[in-house]
Design a protein around this nucleic acid. Structure first.
Length: 150
DNA sequence: GCCAACGTTGGC
DNA sequence: GCCAACGTTGGC
């Protein structure tokens, strides 16, 4: 089983929203690198850290499970959606998503500040210069360290 | 294929 | 709100 980190702005969709919904399509991915990982590298049953970004206290806040195969993100064809992409061909959709299922909230948020300074996380992608990918893989070692902090 | 302009992300 | 980083776009 592989591990991932997935970012969401809590104002748009938070861990509490996922707790309420149970399972949710993780839509709005508009980066090719992230799209390719969703399509090629994720497997149903993989687990992912839910990370709150662009907010007052950026932090890892929960755990979820990859719950579906990749399928076309419907928001790319919705002219009213923020994520609408008029150049995407319905016969060959450009953007994909997967459903994610809530597992649990962390006992407490593990903040970016902690993650930045913790030994063993020097290579964690969140700590890399210019990190902007909204989805990226987490090693088993990193996963254990982060969950050990909650 | 280069690269300047522009847009977005995301921490602070 | 600012700004660094960096992906994308489009002219050439």
């Amino acid at each position: 089983m592989a591990y991932w980190l997935m970012k969401s702005e809590p104002d748009a969709y938070s861990i509490d929203d996922l707790k309420r919904d149970g399972t949710e399509p993780w839509d709005g991915i508009r980066n090719y690198q992230a799209r390719n990982m969703i399509r090629d590298d994720m497997k149903v049953g993989d687990e992912a850290i839910f990370y709150h970004s662009s907010c007052k206290v950026p932090a890892a806040v929960g755990i979820m499970r990859i719950a579906s195969e990749a399928y076309p993100d419907p928001t790319q064809f919705d002219a009213n959606s923020h994520y609408f992409d008029g150049k995407s061909d319905p016969e060959n959709p450009r953007w994909l998503l997967r459903d994610v299922a809530f597992i649990r909230k962390l006992n407490r948020p593990v903040t970016l500040k902690e993650l930045k300074t913790h030994p063993g996380l020097e290579e964690f992608q969140l700590n890399k210069r210019g990190n902007r990918l909204s989805i990226f893989p987490v090693t088993a070692e990193q996963w254990d360290i982060i969950l050990g902090l909650e």
